[in-house]
Design a protein around this nucleic acid. Sequence first.
DNA 1: ATAATATCAGTAAAATTATATCGATAAATA
DNA 2: TATTTATCGATATAATTTTACTGATATTAT
Lengths: 220, 220
Amino acid sequence: MASIKITPEPTIRRLPKYVHLLTILKHKGVKSVSSTMIAESLELDSTLVRKDIEATGIVGRPKTGFLVDKLIMALREHLNWNNEDDAFLIGAGSLGAAILGYKGFRECGLNIVAAFDNNPAKIGTVIKNVPVLDYTKLEEHCRRMHIHIGIITVPAPVAQQTADALIRGGVRAIWNFSPTQIATPQWVVVEYAQLTMSLAVLKRKLRETELTDNSIQETK
Amino acid sequence: MASIKITPEPTIRRLPKYVHLLTILKHKGVKSVSSTMIAESLELDSTLVRKDIEATGIVGRPKTGFLVDKLIMALREHLNWNNEDDAFLIGAGSLGAAILGYKGFRECGLNIVAAFDNNPAKIGTVIKNVPVLDYTKLEEHCRRMHIHIGIITVPAPVAQQTADALIRGGVRAIWNFSPTQIATPQWVVVEYAQLTMSLAVLKRKLRETELTDNSIQETK
DNA sequence: ATAATATCAGTAAAATTATATCGATAAATA
DNA sequence: TATTTATCGATATAATTTTACTGATATTAT
Ligand SMILES: NC(=O)c1ccc[n+]([C@@H]2O[C@H](COP(=O)([O-])OP(=O)(O)OC[C@H]3O[C@@H](n4cnc5c(N)ncnc54)[C@H](O)[C@@H]3O)[C@@H](O)[C@H]2O)c1
Ligand SMILES: NC(=O)c1ccc[n+]([C@@H]2O[C@H](COP(=O)([O-])OP(=O)(O)OC[C@H]3O[C@@H](n4cnc5c(N)ncnc54)[C@H](O)[C@@H]3O)[C@@H](O)[C@H]2O)c1
């Protein structure tokens, strides 16, 4: 009876940071690391780090902590970075090109095998070693190549129709960079990568600190 | 005694989605909207939407809900999108170029006035109407132009030194696209825009659904 | 004019997430 | 070898965030 423990989203979001830090430490020759040390580097609580690591199933030892190598492997395994998924990217614009060119995603088990666009000037070209194909053939190619992940970097108004085509083609997960909500059947996972959301947090926090620094601390 | 209520981060992250949805509704001629309706469009709980809106200070009326126009304005005001902040972007690479070219950030009160790079081939050029200046002059320009927001799109190994230069130049908020943790004084706001984090959530959830769909629901 | 209804605002409860505490244990030190 | 120390793993507590409930009120329908 196979079973999987669902990992809290806040935990998942922290794990890549651990991987990045640990990889740097590994290159420096560090062999083992404690949750205390990770917590200090990343400005987190050490108990939180230990609980996050617990999600991967790896166990540490008192006094020394965790073996860097094993921890990296366990984290990558937990995040599913060790199996590579092929993916299509739709919308070969400026954001799309940046994503196509980023080698870091390969490390995360994401292999973008083709891009799609409806602009005739782009179809047939190659961007960052990835061929740009005709958008009208998207569904067909998805099905034929058994693609499970679609990356949406088209303008907002066409995001929904793009998602629909991907889903018809059998895609199970969508990484949506457009600011629009997209409706999908419940078996499709959608993750919104919204830069605007991140910017909102930055600007709001900036204002909050500006106001609290000058006036007396916030009231209830 | 001026005071400001701190808005929970999860709320801040949802607000831009409301703005986007409401703007579409406004263009369709919709005059008023209820939290129920917003919740349905965005697949959220209506009470949650009402509480989020409460953070902006706006009040609705029973049966009808909120005036779309007023709600948009209140949300934008709360997010500080109505005051435009000038910003510098450091690292005019492919991600940097995508950000420079995105008009949507203007709507969020972010005006990128210059980019900086250390590549002589890029210094002096103009990317998407934004001039690329010499990285060694960053601190000086920050100070002279009273820049408060810095956007880091340089490779990870130089992210910290870039942040240091920005802070020396008087920057109060840093939007960091590199995967590295950066150390800053406590008065500097740092927001990590990590695409890898988002991808991690996508890939993990895809695996979780794959495993739970095929096997019996997860155990404790 | 009266009744029915959808929605708001406020409060209470539940769920989730983060932090604190404590005994056990491996390593370092005396 | 005994003692100190850092850290783990587990459990308990606290904080945050979400969801549920309740009475009041504006609109619509009868
Ligand atoms: N660039 C950024 O920094 C940034 C930031 C936040 C959000 N976004 C979002 O990302 C998306 C893309 O942004 P961008 O700056 O790369 O825009 P862009 O205009 O540079 O790229 C969009 C691409 O999609 C293609 N396209 C348009 N309609 C299409 C269709 N029906 N089928 C297939 N391809 C189609 C266009 O030809 C173009 O190549 C937008 O939704 C935008 O809101 C971008
Ligand atoms: N492209 C993506 O999709 C993507 C995704 C996730 C994270 N990131 C992160 O964003 C950052 C930039 O990525 P990219 O793909 O645009 O890389 P890139 O190589 O295209 O751009 C980096 C730019 O920074 C400049 N630079 C290098 N060192 C510098 C220095 N000391 N001072 C000033 N400028 C300097 C380079 O000349 C180049 O123009 C990286 O940290 C990367 O990890 C990118």
